[in-house]
Design a protein around this nucleic acid. Structure first.
Length: 283
DNA sequence: ATCATTTGACCAAT
DNA sequence: ATTGGTCAAATGAT
């Protein structure tokens, strides 16, 4: 994958988070937010900063260059200005530089988030059509999380759900129906495949890593899911991925709530002098 | 009336 | 040219 595109997307996200934070911390009383929302915005900003920082292939001077707004090919922004008076059909990026991970289950997954179906497509060589969902809060909270759901087997019924991006909305999943393979009556499967740009750890580094067949309850499914091994890992893991690759080694099954803790920890570990190159922390 | 889903069209990637 | 991801008007559900 083109790392620079990843970086640019992250920088864009950071800029949006910065704008949001300025807005809700600013003088405009109509946009004033509760301390909780302010703290959320701050954390979003931190996450972007940390992620950018961990992409240490990019020296900080290059990062700061990227923060200078350019009239670059921001198709979405172009699109918005263009489409404020025209229809928006077809204005989108087909491929996103977001994390993705998969889950196979015997029934459509109920993960506690609010999803809105926005498309359905017949897929070549697939017996069943693929459904496309986005977060309900895509527009009111700019949450970019999406998922695709596709039935992959008739009997027993099997569904593959592919998640793209993390939820940045405040719509926290109901803890009672949160995905947990130990408790959900539907969620009997646990194969997850991560595609990402981080270095692939070796099996020696991560003894729990296995080929898809070892953990997959259905060998026939494993055969169908031909995921390039060079760019993906299979994990037994909670549905929210862990971004920090150094932590994967020991925390493959961290529960969802640990994300925030880890995020804070990561933030604390960042050298503040370097961070100042990227943004101003005012809180 | 409002919100969600369906579905054909549009467009980027291959 | 084909395929897959997204948009948005039409339609349905509440």
């Amino acid at each position: 994958m083109d790392n620079r595109k990843v970086l640019e997307e992250l920088v864009r996200g950071h800029e949006f988070a910065t704008q949001l934070r300025l807005l809700i911390n600013g003088k405009d009383e109509s946009a004033k937010a509760t301390p909780f929302v302010q703290s959320l915005a701050k954390n979003v900003l931190r996450s972007f900063t940390n992620t950018l920082f961990f992409l240490d292939k990019y020296p900080s001077y290059e990062l700061s260059n990227l923060f200078t707004p350019t009239k670059s090919e921001d198709s979405q922004e172009n699109c918005q200005s263009l489409t404020s008076f025209k229809n928006r059909r077809g204005c989108y990026k087909r491929k996103r530089n977001t994390q993705e991970w998969e889950k196979v289950s015997e029934a459509p997954i109920v993960d506690g988030h609010h999803w809105r179906k926005y498309g359905q497509k017949e897929i070549l060589k697939a017996k069943y059509s693929r459904n496309y969902y986005r977060c309900t809060h895509k527009y009111d909270q700019n949450c970019q999380a999406t998922k695709q759901e596709q039935r992959i087997q008739e009997d027993p019924p099997l569904y593959k759900t592919t998640y793209f991006g993390r939820h940045t909305c405040n719509d926290l999943p109901n803890s009672e129906i949160i995905l947990d393979s130990n408790h959900s009556p539907f969620d009997t499967s646990i194969l997850l495949s991560f595609n990402n740009t981080f270095p692939t750890p070796t099996k020696q580094e991560c003894p729990f890593l296995s080929s898809s067949s070892s953990f997959n309850p259905s060998p026939s499914v494993a055969k169908e899911e031909t995921i390039p091994s060079s760019s993906s890992y299979d994990y037994m893991i909670s549905p929210e991925p862990i971004l920090d690759h150094s932590s994967w080694h020991n925390n493959a099954t961290l529960p969802l709530d640990h994300w925030d803790v880890m995020s804070s920890a990561l933030c604390d570990s960042v050298d503040l002098d370097d961070v100042k190159l990227l943004l101003d922390f005012d809180g």
